[in-house]
């Protein structure tokens, strides 16, 4: 519901990794630790104070890039923004058909009793997996618009999943 600013610094560039959905988790982590080891403020406690500001910004960028790339959804978003800056916000308006379906989903979550909840959770999981596969496909075809629209649709499923979990906990 609010517009997230584009990252000024591209997370793939920050970590020096290829811009693709298919990042290997172990490679990503190893790269992150390697960079942290030299860039973290603790390693540079004695540098001049104006250099320290830049140091802090760099260390923050490395942490934030790792967080973004570790999760496939935010990774996909970063790829979209790389291909077409602003595209995620530009595709936020979804079709009436999708929204009608989302409304039904929200109602199903609100009404779900304990025994129906597990089936519903499974349905949400499967839907999200399918959307993610479609996003991957769109991105391999350099179709940032479709990928971004799918990302916006995924939010409704994610919100439904979170609401359902919350409800089960209560």
């Amino acid at each position: 519901m609010r517009h997230v600013l584009l990252r000024l610094i591209d997370p793939f560039e920050t970590l020096g990794l290829p811009a693709t959905m298919d990042l290997d988790a172990a490679t990503l982590e190893a790269r992150y630790l390697e960079l942290s080891r030299t860039a973290h403020p603790d390693r540079n406690a004695e540098v001049e104070s104006d250099a320290q500001v830049a140091m802090l910004a760099r260390a923050a960028a490395i942490n934030d890039a790792f967080r973004t790339l570790r999760d496939p959804w935010t990774r996909a978003q970063a790829l979209c923004e790389r291909l077409a800056p602003g595209v995620v916000a530009a595709t936020a308006k979804l079709s009436p058909e999708f929204l009608a379906g989302a409304m039904e989903l929200a109602e199903a979550v609100a009404l779900a009793e304990r025994d129906a909840a597990e089936a519903l959770a499974e349905r949400i999981r499967r839907a999200l997996a399918a959307i993610l596969a479609d996003i991957r496909a769109a991105l391999t075809h350099v179709d940032a618009r479709s990928a971004a629209r799918l990302l916006n649709e995924a939010r409704y499923w994610q919100k439904a999943g979170a609401d359902l979990r919350q409800k089960l906990r209560a």
């Binding site: 517009h3 802090l56 923050a60 942490n63 934030d64 790792f66 967080r67």
Partner: peptide
């Protein structure tokens, strides 16, 4: 649980 240092910008 975000690792520090961290920096986040959003628009309002």
């Amino acid at each position: 649980n975000a690792t520090i240092p961290t920096s986040v910008t959003e628009e309002f």
